[in-house]
Amino acid sequence: MGIVTNYFETCSIILFGVGFATLMFHRNLIKKIIGMNIMDTAVFLFFIAKGYISGKEAPIITNSYKGIEGYVNPVPTALMLTGIVVAVSTTAFALALTIKLHEKYGTIDLDEIIRMKGD
């Protein structure tokens, strides 16, 4: 029954599996990078769901401070902001490498590239 009630966690684990499988088993580099992003997003969802406490506010102080009990846990959100920045930079780097690979080899199929002899 835990699977139904903790649907955030279930969903994120399924997404993680989808992303992991895409990253591992697709030959196309762009699809691999998409898989990587899905995998990262799944972890972000998992983490943020961990920080959420139902019935409490986002940790933003608007008018008056309500004490620690009034807000959800802000730490996972802050961590995931860092995680998003890391994921963005990795994606940008991977895409740039893919462009260069396409220039040099004329294909973005990883198996074909590995079969070709480098210089």
Partner: peptide
């Protein structure tokens, strides 16, 4: 060089996993 880019993309994909 060609070989470097190939090696790097392999390394990057594996490290991302």
């Amino acid at each position: 060089k060609k070989a470097n880019i190939k090696a790097t993309i392999k390394y990057l994909i594996m490290s991302t996993v």
